[in-house]
Simulated scan of single mutants.
Amino acid sequence: MFDPQDPEFLADPYPAFDALRAVGEVHDHPGLGMAVAVSHSACSAVLRHRGLGRVWSDVKPVEQFAAVNLLHRNSLLESEPPKHTRLRRLIAGAFARGHVERLRPWVAELAGRLVDGLAEKIEAGDSADLLVEVAGPLPVEVIAELLGVPGPDRALLQPWSNAIVKLYEYGLPPQTREAAERAAAEFVAYLRELIALRRRQPGSDLVSDLVAETDTDGARLTEDELVATAVLLLMAGHEASVNVVGNGVLALMRHRDQWQRLVEDPALLPTAVEELIRFDSPLQLFERTAATEVEIAGHVVKPGEKIAALLGAAARDPLVFDSPGTLDVGRSPNAHLGFGAGIHYCVGAPLARLEIGATLSALTRRLPTAQLAETPARRAEFVIRGLRSLHLTS
């Protein structure tokens, strides 16, 4: 069984997933304390089965993690029907007011400006880090614009997000957990002030629409739910976009024929976005807890037990994807599970696709001869798969 802290596994987990899939679709993982699904069919079943759900267990001791627990107790991601149904209807209703289309030209302009800055450093004779110059700041700016966060405050968001998302890894030291709580408490306090401002002075941003959105019975999101929604959008949106761009551009640099296809044919951008999400998934594991006894691919999950869908393993299943280890920017259809499935399908998927597509478009236009300046450094985490840096030259 794979060790999620083994550097060799973290560098390339896919051979281990292939070996497990060849033996069976679901396996017990003693180290993670749960079963793991490795086939596309089994992972899809885990994500869709209504007997499996997200059951949040408060971080303990509870009195020391008040902000972290508040965010997750009130999160769309960590809830199940009927609460999830109400939250998703309200949040989707606010999103449906045209925010993605409103932001489309702004995101394209932002991506172009950030890539121009990257290119200028490269053209001056230096290498430049794609994550620092483009992939990191772009999704933070986009989410901040979506939420209506004032410009001077936007630098606060990425450090808060980076600290909180580390809670999704396993075997954390106490100082990492404590840093996550400090970040969560600061973020909660900031958002309460922003929400109060938008109640007094509504704008064209998503927070204003979330404040105003009502359900069919007149119900609204509570303030805690508003706060949790804004935090979820930042954390999920930032981590997904930055790591798809980082992992994806690395894959393209190592598969020059596919990079060249994209340079020569911008019409491939939509399928390229989906393929980069599939090829090296930014989210490798998504867990569920059984509410009743559930059987997944012959494996019985008893009430209270957990099972995880290994999304990176599902994305390399040869029963679903032809030559799954091959990067193909024209791949279609592409039934990856990178945005989840079922009732927890990512509500921000259209925005993530917009950000990734705009970044790839700007990169291929402005830096068609881009190449790796050095072997990139990978982050030492398994669940959220990404790079520490990605230096490019030309």
Results as ranks from 00 to 15, higher is better:
29 H>C: 12
359 T>P: 01
302 K>R: 15
25 E>L: 00
370 A>S: 10
287 E>N: 07
8 E>S: 14
91 I>T: 12
63 E>Y: 03
243 N>G: 11
52 L>S: 04
363 L>C: 09
394 S>P: 00
85 T>A: 11
394 S>Q: 12
278 R>H: 04
69 N>L: 05
354 L>Q: 06
71 L>Y: 01
188 V>A: 05
113 R>V: 06
108 A>T: 13
367 L>N: 08
3 D>H: 13
201 Q>K: 10
381 E>W: 14
393 T>Y: 12
320 V>E: 15
37 A>Y: 08
357 G>F: 06
188 V>F: 01
126 D>A: 14
226 L>G: 07
182 R>D: 03
354 L>R: 04
349 A>Y: 08
383 V>T: 14
217 D>M: 00
99 H>E: 10
385 R>I: 01
133 E>L: 11
385 R>P: 00
340 G>N: 01
40 H>I: 05
300 V>Y: 03
245 V>Q: 03
152 P>V: 02
266 P>V: 15
52 L>F: 05
224 D>W: 05
197 L>F: 15
293 E>C: 15
175 Q>D: 12
202 P>D: 12
72 H>F: 15
264 E>M: 08
357 G>W: 03
45 A>E: 09
238 H>P: 02
226 L>R: 06
361 S>P: 00
21 R>V: 05
334 N>W: 02
26 V>T: 09
237 G>S: 11
128 A>G: 11
190 Y>A: 04
322 D>F: 00
30 P>Q: 14
4 P>Q: 05
387 L>N: 06
373 A>R: 06
80 E>P: 01
85 T>G: 09
322 D>W: 07
117 G>K: 07
34 M>K: 08
379 R>N: 07
27 H>W: 02
122 I>Y: 03
18 D>S: 13
360 L>Q: 10
219 A>Q: 15
93 G>D: 08
176 T>L: 12
98 G>E: 09
218 G>K: 12
233 L>V: 00
222 T>S: 14
94 A>I: 10
176 T>P: 00
327 L>A: 05
11 A>K: 06
216 T>P: 00
320 V>W: 01
27 H>C: 04
320 V>I: 12
325 G>Q: 02
269 L>T: 13
362 A>S: 11
153 D>R: 10
149 V>W: 02
121 K>Q: 15
344 H>I: 04
134 V>R: 05
205 D>I: 08
349 A>N: 10
131 L>Q: 05
356 I>H: 02
